[in-house]
Amino acid sequence: MSTQTKLLKTYAPPLATFGAFIGVWYAVHYFILSENRKFIVPPPHAVIDNSFLNGIARSELAEGLVNTGRIALFGFLIASVLALFGSVLMAGNRMIERALFPYAVALQTVPILALVPLFSVWFGPTRTARIVTCVLVAIFPILTSFLFGLKSVDSGHQDLFTLNNVSRTTRFRKLLFPAALPSIFTGLRIGAGLCVIGALVADFFFSRGDLGLGRLLNNYAKRLEYEKLFGGVILASALGVAIYILIGWIANRSLRDWHESEARSA
């Protein structure tokens, strides 16, 4: 197959979907909504005009994006590192696992959002409060995936390492970690999306502190500035997608030679 047809086959389907989406968007605005309700779905070009080409809105949105992105990224890093430590501890010691894992599962069902006002009482409308929200929203799904990976190591491989009398660190570095890598990336992908949600939601609750996308969305909605609201939504989505793609790229680099999930198609 020539490179051109290959590129076409790779990019044409998602581009077609994107085109269809924009088409539906326009159709909703021009053909479905009645005249006095058209403002609730502004057409794409108006969104671009009013949010990305308008100087004030643009700098406002850029500031929000940077602040929210920074919180999401920090939260994501902290959640990942904590999840890694937690899962290694639990995978290495049955008692610790029994003591902690039930809570890790139970806490996933706690609506963390309900706790956000509490964090703002404890930490003030600070970055700390926002990062804590992010971490709590994201950490448990990441931890569960990590732990699943570390515990699903093939028992034959375990025996092989046992026969070589390896230390725990060597077993971790040369067996558990690489074997768990596919699950680790799954956890990171889920966590990346959740961290953006966490950062946005924390921001929604705080009317003080750094200006983030969450508060902007809230403000635009209240002021009925729907073009800007759509712009903010697009940026927030793009942030999640960007982190997701970045992790996907790293996963692909590390797994494509040997793991089916990232295998290069022939």
Binding site: D154, G156, H157, D159, L160, L163, P178, D257
Partner: peptide, 12 residues
């Protein structure tokens, strides 16, 4: 030396 029933190669 120990050869297992499966080859138990590390896929990575």
């Amino acid at each position: 030396g120990y050869v297992f029933q499966d080859a138990t190669l590390l896929p990575w």
